[in-house]
Structure formats: structure tokens, C-alpha cells
Simulated assay, not measured.
Amino acid sequence: MANLLVRGLDESLVQSLREQAAAHGRSAEAEHREILAQALSRPKKRSFTEVLASMPNVGEDADFERVQSSSEAPRVFD
């Protein structure tokens, strides 16, 4: 198993790690391992293309066409 040495940490950060570890009933080293595991094992975010591709087919394109009630475009900012 590999070792990891982290230098130059602010003492308040180390203290917070110790407090969080104590609250979870484990050593600071075990808490550090758990934090790293959670941070690095999160599922990767899907791309916009993947999200669009996962959307269900809910109708024809014509169902969503914009219909103008008159030949003149509506005046929004008068």
C-alpha cells in the first residue's frame, strides 16, 4: 500500500481533521483516508451531450414549434 505525506498544512485544518476524526470514532489518519476516498470516488459529471441523449423521446419536433399569432413579432420592451 502506498504512503502519502502532506506538508505545509495550516494548523487549524489539522485540528479540524482531528476533531472530525474524533467525532467519527477513528484516527486522524483513517479520517484522512476516508475524506480522500470520498472526494476521489465520486461519479464523474456527465457531459451536456450525455444528458441530452438520456432524455426520453416525448413527441415530434412539430409539437414544439413556435406559433406566431400575427405577422409582426410581439413587442416585449415598450
Rank of each mutant, 00 (worst) to 15 (best):
H32G: 05
S54R: 08
R75A: 09
A21G: 06
L4T: 05
S71T: 05
A62W: 04
Q38D: 07
S70K: 13
K45W: 02
R42W: 01
R46V: 04
R66V: 04
S54E: 03
E72R: 13
V67I: 14
H24F: 11
P74N: 06
S54T: 03
G8W: 08
L13A: 12
D63H: 13
S69P: 04
G59V: 01
L17H: 01
V58R: 10
P74M: 01
S12Q: 13
A73E: 12
V67D: 13
L17D: 02
A23T: 06
V58S: 04
H24R: 15
S41W: 03
G59Q: 00
R75Q: 12
Q15S: 08
F64W: 10
M1E: 13
P43H: 05
A30W: 06
R26Y: 08
R18G: 03
P56T: 07
D61S: 14
K44F: 01
L4I: 02
L13G: 10
N3M: 15
R75F: 06
E34H: 07
R33Y: 11
G25N: 13
A2H: 13
R75W: 05
R26I: 01
Q20E: 14
R18D: 08
E50Y: 03
R42F: 01
R18Y: 02
S41D: 04
A30F: 03
R18L: 08
M55D: 05
G8N: 15
S69F: 07
I35E: 11
M1N: 12
E11H: 05
Q15V: 00
A37P: 00
V67E: 15
A73T: 10
T49M: 04
A62Y: 05
R42A: 01
M1Y: 12
R33G: 09
E19A: 12
R33E: 13
